[in-house]
Design a protein around this nucleic acid. Structure first.
Lengths: 234, 234
DNA sequence: AATAGAAGTGTATATATTACATTTAAAATA
DNA sequence: TATTTTAAATGTAATATATACACTTCTATT
């Protein structure tokens, strides 16, 4: 029974993770990149990746890679696309499934990050990446833009408590354009998915800006009843 | 150089094709399914699939499978998702990348279809499928619904010449609901992507319905200038 | 008490979406 | 050749959504 497929070839299978973070202070989207510590392409910039093991699913492999690198689990992650060109990896034929993950930069311990040779690099100023990793990143960016429009996944890139200004800055960093402050607030608040806190953020202004929290439970409840998240604004 | 990855395991890699067709007369979306002629699961219903060869890309493998089955090339096809659960195939561990294709039922020669053991089965009455193929189909259906809303891919399921009634019926079959005739026509015609022909379809009514053609060149031109196709109607 | 700087707020206009019923064309039939 | 039948084709008013736009508020600092 285990040899029925034996006339067919087998292949190396990898996963690569496009890990997005958002820098609140710099108002910039970032990518977690690795300086490769092995051949081929030693010393070059790369996505975090790894080979799929015998006994693990693709999703498990992606989680393992992400978790090993960051020390974090339960992160937002989603399969993106599978890259299967014959010569995409000069080392050997490797098919790679790309995943994209969203993490709060603040969640990642800088010690762990450094130890693993990982660096946050600004999206607007990416270094050259090995193989087809740049193609993967570009697809992930497109996907992210579409995703944050119609699913409340942007919150994964922010701390639990965030201000409306921070949320808007995040959307502007993803959309690569300015959005109207009043229209943005009107729209997000009208969904009634944000719980205003009794506390203000006081770093960036004298007046201070109210903190909000995203109410996931409420979103799930609404979504069950046919509600659609939508944050497309002028 | 070819042995640097040799400590990692290799895996069987397959592609499976979700092939959609649309039956104008029955106003029904259909799937092209195979009665399996080999073990495991001989005799059961399955998507068209095949193993990825040494020297072919994933896309090539999917095209080969589709082309072998239908005798057709240059069909609309798109990668959908990769299924990598360890035990998804009882024969051996096989990772499978699903593709979905859109073809005009009229384009497929019934002789070729029969010879390959392929059958058009109505979406609303699918038989049990092997492995996780039903999961693949469900994902493809969701994707199709989203796709036809914002890309002019529905035309791939129709003949070159089609009537507005046929186009609306197709959308209704995909959306699984009725749409308003006047609003539908207003919207599609306002995009000015359909060229009215000097000829009528006369099978289904005395009055006859004007034939139209989708103007792909015009769409490409508009899309280059930031135009977005949109066919979401009440 | 005055200043400075970011947070917070509302309304009018334009655009898009929805709901809805009658007329038209032409073949078939009386 | 007048009438019937059947599906195709058509327009408008009401509602909802999206957009454009500028001033006030708050509070730490001087």
């Amino acid at each position: 029974m285990t040899h029925i497929y034996s006339k067919y070839p087998k292949h190396y299978l990898a996963v690569d993770c496009i890990i997005f973070g958002y820098d609140i202070a710099e108002k910039e989207l970032k990518l977690l990149l690795i300086k490769r510590s092995f051949e081929p392409a030693l010393g070059q910039w790369s996505l975090a990746g790894g080979f799929v093991q015998e006994n693990e699913s693709l999703d498990d492999a992606a989680c393992r890679v992400l978790c090993t690198l960051t020390g974090l689990s339960d992160l937002y992650m989603e399969q993106l696309y599978t890259y299967g060109e014959v010569n995409r990896d000069p080392g050997a034929r490797v098919i790679s499934t790309a995943y994209f993950a969203l993490i709060g930069i603040h969640e990642l311990d800088p010690e762990i990050r450094r130890k693993n040779g990982a660096h946050w690099r600004s999206i607007s100023n990416l270094p050259d990446l090995i193989f087809d990793h740049r193609v993967m990143v570009d697809r992930a960016l497109k996907e992210l833009v579409e995703k944050v429009k119609v699913y409340p996944v942007g919150f994964e890139l922010l701390p639990e408590k965030f201000t409306l200004v921070q949320l808007q800055n995040l959307y502007e960093a993803i959309y690569l354009r300015q959005v109207d402050k009043r229209n943005f607030r009107k729209k997000i608040l009208s969904m009634e998915l944000l719980d205003k806190q009794d506390e203000k953020e006081r770093e960036t202004s004298k007046k201070g800006a109210w903190y909000y929290r995203f109410n996931l439970e409420k979103y799930k409840e609404l979504a069950r009843n046919g509600f659609f998240f939508n944050l497309t604004v002028s």
